[in-house]
Amino acid sequence: MADYLVKALAYDGVVRAYAVNATETVAEAQRRHETWHTASAALGRSLVGGLLLGATLKGEDKLTVKIMGDGPAGAIIVDSNAKGEVKGYIQNPKVALPLNAQGKLDVRGAVGTQGLFTVIKDLGLKEPFTGQTPIVSGELGEDFTYYLASSEQVPSAVGLSVLVNPDDTIQTAGGFMIQIMPGASDEIITRLEQKLASLPRVSSLLADGMTPEQILETILDDTTIFYLETMPVQFKCDCSKEKFGSALITLGTSELNEMIEEDHGAETVCSFCGNKYHFSEQDLHELVQEIEGKKD
Rank of each mutant, 00 (worst) to 15 (best):
residue 239 C to T: 10
residue 216 L to W: 05
residue 206 L to E: 10
residue 8 A to D: 13
residue 79 D to L: 01
residue 87 K to I: 01
residue 268 T to W: 13
residue 205 L to K: 08
residue 59 G to Y: 15
residue 64 T to Q: 14
residue 236 K to C: 06
residue 7 K to F: 04
residue 295 K to D: 06
residue 3 D to C: 06
residue 92 N to V: 02
residue 257 N to H: 12
residue 155 P to Q: 04
residue 43 L to C: 01
residue 9 L to I: 01
residue 134 P to C: 05
residue 121 K to C: 04
residue 287 L to F: 07
residue 276 K to M: 06
residue 272 F to P: 05
residue 3 D to Q: 03
residue 189 I to W: 06
residue 167 D to K: 06
residue 57 L to K: 05
residue 254 S to L: 12
residue 253 T to N: 13
residue 20 V to S: 09
residue 286 E to L: 10
residue 207 A to V: 00
residue 278 H to S: 09
residue 128 P to S: 05
residue 72 P to W: 11
residue 261 E to S: 07
residue 85 E to I: 01
residue 161 S to I: 09
residue 188 I to K: 00
residue 257 N to L: 08
residue 147 Y to W: 03
residue 295 K to E: 11
residue 126 K to D: 15
residue 175 G to I: 10
residue 166 P to T: 10
residue 56 T to S: 14
residue 256 L to D: 14
residue 21 N to H: 07
residue 72 P to H: 08
residue 90 I to V: 07
residue 236 K to A: 09
residue 150 S to T: 15
residue 260 I to T: 09
residue 52 L to G: 01
residue 138 G to R: 11
residue 238 D to N: 14
residue 137 S to T: 10
residue 257 N to F: 03
residue 97 L to N: 03
residue 98 P to A: 11
residue 64 T to L: 08
residue 99 L to I: 03
residue 269 V to L: 15
residue 89 Y to E: 00
residue 197 A to S: 13
residue 224 T to R: 13
residue 19 A to I: 01
residue 2 A to V: 06
residue 220 L to A: 10
residue 159 G to Q: 10
residue 220 L to D: 14
residue 133 T to M: 13
residue 247 A to V: 07
residue 213 E to K: 12
residue 8 A to K: 03
residue 156 S to H: 10
residue 192 L to H: 12
residue 113 T to P: 12
residue 195 K to P: 00
residue 65 V to T: 08
residue 32 R to Q: 14
residue 239 C to K: 04
residue 74 G to C: 03
